[in-house]
């Protein structure tokens, strides 16, 4: 069966997108990415460490952009201007690469998205030719506005970034999916494999995670678990689950032909 994730016209066979942060070293990063089967990986853009060894290991060597689709992010940006500048630097750094993850945060405690700045940044970036995958709240109205601006994927949080609290409001994710036609990808909040499976079972096009893998005791094992969970959740969605029957059981075995009582 040909069931691919299509973002901005490009086809991907994996619906699991992963971050490259918080690993102990680049060897572990690469092993986890390989175990996850992810094709799209997020990276951050940061100032070079002045005065430090210019020959220190480079992420681009450990995770070659020829093997993975880079998704530079704007993590740590609190204004539309900073986010736009960061992604213009990313595009220059990555030889004109235009697929990006926009996130504009509201405060450092919750890392909750500032949707007003996010909308402003999305407008500027789309006009400048970027293909914008956008991290946002699970507000269906904002999600639709971001799609109307021209974002190529809507990425609502399922719970706070790095919290591992799972899918807290499946109803809002459903409201978003009912309204937008570009891929809806859960970004943030997944803690373990069942959370990822639930996101896909709900009909989300994919899931993006970092801490759930990097923060596990065995990141490489968890990366493999996430790969299976995403596949299982997607298959369950496509299979179409049985309807829930509240307060009524339905036997799985035939109701006819049951042996009779012995009359004494």
């Amino acid at each position: 069966m040909n069931d691919e994730l299509i973002i901005a016209g490009k086809h991907y066979s994996s619906r699991l997108l992963v971050g490259t942060g918080k690993y102990k070293d680049f060897t572990e990063t690469r092993a986890a990415l390989d175990a996850s089967g992810a094709e799209i990986v997020t990276v951050a853009i940061r100032r070079t460490n002045l005065g430090q060894n210019a020959n220190e290991p480079n992420l681009l060597d450990a995770v070659p952009p020829s093997k993975f689709t880079y998704l530079p992010n704007t993590a740590g940006c609190y204004t539309a201007d900073d986010a736009v500048r960061t992604l213009r630097l990313a595009r220059e750094l990555l030889d004109g690469h235009s697929l990006v993850k926009l996130e504009v945060l509201g405060d450092p405690q919750s890392l909750y998205p500032n949707v007003i700045e996010t909308l402003a940044a999305a407008k500027t970036l789309v006009a400048d030719g970027f293909q914008v995958m956008v991290y946002t709240s699970d507000d269906p109205i904002i999600a639709k506005q971001l799609e109307d601006i021209g974002c190529v994927a809507i990425m609502p949080l399922a719970s706070l970034i790095g919290s591992g609290m799972g899918i807290l409001n499946p109803w809002n994710l459903q409201l978003i999916m009912d309204r937008v036609s570009v891929p809806v990808i859960v970004d943030a909040g997944v803690g373990t494999a069942s959370d990822a499976a639930i996101a896909l079972e709900l009909g989300c096009a994919g899931v993006l995670m970092n801490t759930a893998i990097a923060g596990a005791e065995n990141p490489v094992l968890m990366a493999g678990a996430m790969k299976l969970a995403v596949q299982a959740g997607r298959s369950a969605f496509l299979a179409g689950r049985m309807p829930k029957k509240l307060y009524s059981a339905s036997p799985s075995s035939p109701t006819a032909g049951i042996i009779g009582s012995v009359h004494k």
Binding site: T20, G21, Y23, T42, V43, N58, L59
Partner: peptide, 10 residues
């Protein structure tokens, strides 16, 4: 001037 590189991130 700002000089940047790609680093690990989510």
């Amino acid at each position: 001037l700002e000089i940047v590189v790609a680093v690990g991130g989510g």
